[in-house]
């Protein structure tokens, strides 16, 4: 069974979203790919993250994760402006495989207005979605 942390929200294209507390104003979120997604891709050899300052719309291809056999776009689940990207991944793409919810985060977005979690899947719903997909 896939590891699906309780404090995150998920998309059908297997991104996760975390509210960032403290350091940023309301509406700042962190984005990465799920345990399931990294495992399906296999050993990542390259990760491309968006430049800080770039404006993204929800559903826009914003990052690329690449393994030997596949390359996949990462779609931003939210609209807003990129405030940070994980520069570590350029040299160590394997962080996404090793720690997809932690050190393998991809980028942070300042959303336009407060972020509404209800637009995304809950951990329970995502677990169900994965179970359905596997059938």
């Amino acid at each position: 069974m896939s590891d699906i942390p309780n404090d995150l929200r998920y998309t059908k294209s297997h991104e996760w979203v975390r509210k960032v507390h403290g350091e940023a104003p309301d509406g700042a979120v962190e984005i990465g790919i799920s345990q399931h997604a990294q495992s399906a891709l296999g050993d990542l050899v390259f990760v491309e993250v968006p430049e800080a300052g770039r404006t993204l719309s929800a559903g826009e291809a914003s990052a690329v994760v690449e393994s030997v056999k596949a390359a996949s776009d990462v779609y931003s689940p939210v609209s807003g402006k990129v405030i940070a990207a994980n520069g570590e991944l350029a040299a160590r793409p394997e962080l996404v495989n090793q720690d997809p919810y932690g050190a393998g985060w991809l980028f942070r977005v300042q959303t336009n207005g407060p972020f509404d979690e209800a637009t995304l899947m809950s951990p329970v719903a995502y677990a169900q979605y994965l179970a359905d997909e596997a059938k």
Binding site: V45, E66, S67, V68, K69, A71, D73
Partner: peptide, 12 residues
């Protein structure tokens, strides 16, 4: 670096 190529990346 085959992930750049058509047999993997298709329309992209």
């Amino acid at each position: 670096l085959q992930a750049r190529e058509q047999h993997i990346r298709r329309s992209k």
